[in-house]
Measured scan of single mutants.
Amino acid sequence: QKPIVRVFLPNKQRTVVPARCGVTVRDSLKKALMMRGLIPECCAVYRIQDGEKKPIGWDTDISWLTGEELHVEVLE
């Protein structure tokens, strides 16, 4: 079983991306966001920890988040 990260996107959409070492959250999600007309710069990404949303940086190595759920939200 490959290491993955589940990602909840705006508009009730979601995707799953591989959690590859040395790849940033930005690079992992860029294609999924672009297909939906979004760019990382207009969004914020969060991980859910103890039921709370914790913001994470787009430059975080995605392999550190293996098995986690991330939420991407459009910044107002």
Rank of each mutant, 00 (worst) to 15 (best):
E41N: 13
V23E: 07
V23H: 11
P55D: 15
T15P: 00
P3L: 08
M34H: 04
E68C: 06
V23I: 12
E76L: 03
D61S: 04
P10S: 01
K53M: 06
G51I: 13
E52M: 07
E52N: 10
R26C: 08
M34L: 11
C21Y: 11
P40Y: 14
C21W: 06
H71S: 09
E73H: 08
S28K: 02
V16W: 05
L29V: 07
S28E: 02
R6Q: 05
S63W: 07
K12Q: 13
Q49C: 12
V72W: 00
T24V: 04
V23K: 14
M35V: 14
E41F: 02
L38P: 02
V45R: 00
S63H: 09
G22Q: 09
R14G: 11
D59T: 09
I4W: 01
H71N: 09
L70G: 02
C42K: 14
L75T: 14
E68Q: 12
M35D: 11
G57H: 05
R14M: 10
E73I: 01
V7Y: 01
K12H: 12
C42Y: 07
A19H: 02
V74A: 14
L75C: 15
L29A: 01
T60N: 09
D50A: 07
G51R: 09
P55L: 13
D50H: 14
K30Q: 05
R36F: 03
L65G: 04
T60R: 11
V25I: 13
K30P: 01
V72E: 00
N11L: 04
L75I: 11
K31Q: 10
Q1E: 15
P3M: 14
P55M: 15
D59Y: 03
V17A: 04
G22V: 01
V72R: 00
V25P: 01
P3R: 15
D27K: 08
V5A: 02
L75K: 14
S28L: 01
D59W: 04
Q49A: 12
S28F: 01
L9S: 00
K53F: 13
L65K: 03
M35W: 06
C43V: 08
S63P: 01
E69N: 15
I62R: 00
T24C: 04
G67W: 07
E52G: 11
T60D: 08
G22D: 04
I62L: 09
I48T: 08
I62A: 10
V23S: 10
M34D: 09
S28R: 02
R26H: 08
I48C: 08
E76R: 09
I39P: 13
V25Q: 00
I4L: 03
T24H: 04
L65N: 10
R14W: 10
E41D: 10
T66W: 03
V25D: 00
D61H: 10
H71Y: 12
M35Y: 11
R6I: 06
D59Q: 08
R36L: 08
D27P: 00
R26E: 12
I39T: 15
Q13H: 07
L38A: 05
D27E: 09
T15R: 02
G57T: 14
K2F: 15
E69H: 09
D61V: 03
V45C: 12
T15C: 05
I4M: 05
N11C: 01
C43M: 15
H71C: 12
P18T: 11
D27V: 07
T24N: 12
R14K: 06
C43Y: 10
R14H: 13
L38W: 09
G57K: 12
F8Q: 05
A44V: 12
P3D: 15
R6E: 05
G67M: 06
E69L: 04
T24K: 08
V45L: 12
I39M: 13
E52T: 11
S28Q: 08
C42V: 05
W64G: 14
P55A: 10
G51K: 09
K31D: 12
K2C: 03
M35R: 15
C42M: 12
E69Q: 08
R47Q: 14
C21V: 15
W64D: 15
L75P: 13
I48N: 07
V25Y: 00
V72C: 08
L9P: 00
I39H: 15
R47K: 15
L33D: 04
P40R: 11
V5D: 00
W64Q: 14
V16F: 10
A19W: 02
D50S: 09
W64N: 10
T66G: 12
T15N: 01
S63C: 05
T24Y: 03
K31A: 06
K30A: 06
L70W: 02
G22M: 04
Q13E: 11
G67V: 05
Q1L: 14
G57V: 08
V5S: 01
L70V: 14
P18K: 14
P55V: 13
